[in-house]
Simulated scan of single mutants.
Amino acid sequence: MNSTVSQFNYGMITPVVAFLMACAGAALGLRCTTRSVRMGAQGRRGPWLTLGAICIGSGIWTMHFIAMIGFTIDGASIRYDMALTFLSLGVAVAVVLLGVFIVGYRGTSPLTLGVAGVVTGAGVAAMHYIGMYGMKFAGHMSFDPVTVGLSVLIAVTAATAALWAAVSLHTLASAAAASVIMGVAVTGMHYTGMAAMSVHVDAGSRVQGQSSMDLLFSLIPMVGGPIVVLVLAAVIVMFDPDMLVGNDPVQNIQGQGQEPEAASVADTRPTASWPSL
């Protein structure tokens, strides 16, 4: 039989906290990728791009899981498959890492940005639906394909904007604004994907797995890793004056009467305008 679901079992606490986590991951990721773009030697970009991708991917995954804590199904107990839950985290970080590396080394031409955005957005959507598939209860789920398509479109759009912002926005104010927009987009993608789902419950059946709160406590050691990364990234931003205030090392060199090599300037200063289609 069809069952009623609720996305807000704890009121607005879970969506607000989920949104804030998405914004925090995006903000730290943007500042790390900004630092990578400013590195003169491309060989030193990798660690910064990786840290930025981990921040963004961890923020997206944490947003998804916190939002799912508020999800309930009338007449059914929800359990979670640990392996699929871990897999969804790995997918989130991996696809963001791939997209960030593409634009970090190839730039933001329309073709490059489009390919990276589609790959990353589709991966973020896959993370969401892998996490949903890992949700076990006495019954089954069905999805409206039109709404699913809309959620994927939102994910691709958000990913494309995020990747462009990651290598194009250098000031603290612009990065903060982009982080809020990204937080709205990925949280909206999550709840759009949830709206696509219909639940059919088989009364009296039992399923194996862990409840959302049991899973939360069991995930604390693993979640501690991404949290430590986010904290370390925040410390880096706080103690790196150039990253905090948005100073451009290339402009500083020119202001002192020195002429950097043309290739170095081209490598370290991608355009801050939206690429024309």
Results as ranks from 00 to 15, higher is better:
Gln7Val: 11
His200Asp: 13
Met21Leu: 13
Ala185Pro: 00
Gly57Trp: 03
Val152Arg: 12
Leu28Val: 13
Thr120Arg: 00
Thr50Met: 08
Thr120Ser: 00
Gly114Ser: 10
Thr85Asn: 05
Thr147Ile: 05
Asp81Glu: 03
Tyr10Cys: 06
Gly75Ser: 09
Val115Glu: 00
Ser88Ala: 02
Ala83Val: 14
Gly204Ala: 14
Gly25Ile: 06
Ala159His: 04
Ala125Pro: 05
Arg35Cys: 06
Trp61Leu: 09
Val228Pro: 15
Met63Ile: 02
Gly90Thr: 14
Gly114Asp: 08
Gln256Ala: 12
Gly11Ala: 07
Ala196Val: 01
Gly123Gln: 01
Thr157Lys: 15
Pro275Asn: 08
Val152Gln: 11
Ser212Ile: 03
Leu84Met: 03
Gly149Ile: 00
Leu87Thr: 15
Met68Ser: 05
Gly246His: 04
His64Cys: 08
Gly134Arg: 02
Leu30Arg: 01
Pro110Glu: 06
Val237Lys: 07
Ser151His: 06
Leu113Ile: 07
Leu113Phe: 11
Ala272Asn: 12
Gly99Val: 09
Met127Trp: 08
Gly99Ala: 04
Ser218Gly: 08
Ser174Arg: 12
Ala53Asn: 11
Ala126Met: 06
Phe19Val: 01
Val265Tyr: 10
Gly25Asn: 08
Phe8Met: 14
Ala173Ile: 15
Ala165Glu: 02
Val37Ser: 04
Val180Thr: 06
Phe19His: 06
Ala166Ile: 03
Ala196Asn: 03
Thr120Asp: 00
Val156Trp: 07
Gly121Tyr: 04
Met222Phe: 07
Met1Asp: 11
Val95Pro: 00
Val167Ala: 02
Ile227Glu: 10
Arg31Val: 12
Ile227Tyr: 14
Leu172Lys: 13
Thr85Gly: 04
Val156Gln: 09
Met189Glu: 07
Pro145Asn: 12
Val119Phe: 01
Gln208Ala: 14
Val199Met: 05
Gly107Asp: 07
Ala161Ile: 02
Arg31Thr: 12
Val156Cys: 05
Gly255Lys: 10
Met127Val: 00
Ala138Cys: 13
Ser205Asn: 11
Ala165Ile: 07
Gly11Ile: 08
Ile102Ser: 03
Phe143Thr: 01
Met141Ile: 00
Ala234Asn: 14
His140Ser: 08
Ile236His: 04
Ala159Ser: 04
Asp74Met: 06
Phe71Tyr: 07
Met39Trp: 02
Met135Asn: 05
Val223Ala: 10
Val231Glu: 11
Ala166Met: 09
Cys55Val: 09
Leu153Tyr: 14
Ala122Arg: 04
Gly123Ala: 02
Thr33Cys: 07
Gly90Trp: 11
Tyr191Asn: 03
Ser205Pro: 01
Ser142Pro: 14
Pro226Gln: 07
Ala166Leu: 04
